[in-house]
């Protein structure tokens, strides 16, 4: 049947198209996550500076931004910060209560402080929504780019796609370009001035690259980039799920590099 070949080819093409559209969902999602992180940091800094008029010692004790914001949101004023209530947020409850009593901060009334609470609440919401989108990224990458995901994890996969622009573009990139995706500035400096080329771009966030010694980092990055280039092609052509196999190969390569 001569129609059959044509049908199979057409169906393959359509599956591929459908998938490449879905890669854009991943890219928008990761961009949203990055933007929400920025917004969260902005809000957090504002809340910290603002509330420090009232209780400047608190950020010194509670360093984790999320914990800090939860405390502000629920126990806004110094007199409210009792050990009993603080306990569920932090092991430093006792210390906070003690500091609150002898704080150098100004006495602000409820009305003044309420505005800060608003912003703290908003920052917490932004963080929660951001985490929801991250969960979604974990899900869609499983479906659209299973091979890349197996090698790089969902978030790094999304960052790479976002830097490349699309799965198609990434699939057509040589490994050497993938290796320095996200290091455009350093690459530019290398070309313009006389500094050594970057060893890695965003793939620095891969745990194996990160934990490599300074000497090995270049080799590990190159070997990871080689595998990622193959994974991107497999995902793009929608052929096989070789993720596990490739991860194993990568780990064997690592053993060799590290000797």
């Amino acid at each position: 049947m001569k129609d059959r070949k044509k049908a199979i080819e057409e169906a393959r093409k359509k599956v591929k198209e459908a998938k490449t559209e879905r890669d854009q969902l991943i890219i928008h999602s990761i961009k949203a996550v990055e933007e929400m992180d920025e917004v969260f940091n902005l809000f957090y800094e504002r809340v910290e500076n603002w509330h420090s008029l009232h209780f400047p010692e608190l950020p010194e004790i509670v360093k984790n931004p999320e914990t800090y914001l939860h405390i502000i949101n629920e126990l806004l004023t110094r007199p409210e910060m009792k050990e009993e209530k603080l306990k569920q947020h932090t092991p430093k409850a006792k210390k906070i209560e003690k500091e609150s009593k002898k704080s150098m901060g100004a006495e602000l009334d409820e009305k003044d402080l309420k505005q800060i609470k608003r912003l703290a609440k908003l920052a917490i919401d932004v963080k929660n929504e951001r985490n929801e989108i991250e969960e979604y990224i974990k899900d869609v990458t499983k479906e659209v780019t299973p091979n890349l995901r197996a090698l790089a994890g969902p978030i790094l996969t999304a960052r790479l796609l976002s830097l490349a622009g699309s799965l198609e573009k990434m699939a057509k990139m040589p490994a050497s370009t993938i290796q320095v995706l996200g290091a455009e500035k350093a690459l530019f400096a290398h070309l313009k001035k006389n500094v050594p080329p970057p060893k890695h771009g965003v793939i620095f966030n891969h745990p194996e690259v990160r934990k490599s010694s300074e000497d090995n980092r270049g080799k590990v990055s190159r070997s990871l980039a080689n595998k990622l280039a193959i994974a991107a092609r497999l995902d793009y052509f929608g052929d096989k799920h070789k993720g596990k196999e490739m991860k194993k190969e990568f780990q064997e390569k690592l053993k060799k590099i590290r000797g």
Partner: peptide, 28 residues
């Protein structure tokens, strides 16, 4: 002629059609 509109099952249907001489996959 096998018509299916979602890409996920289609991914499995295509290799099946490749093995079966009387099967045509259509993503539509």
């Amino acid at each position: 002629v096998c018509v299916e509109y979602s890409e996920k099952p289609m991914e499995k249907l295509i290799p099946l059609a490749e093995k079966r001489s009387n099967m045509l996959p259509v993503m539509g």
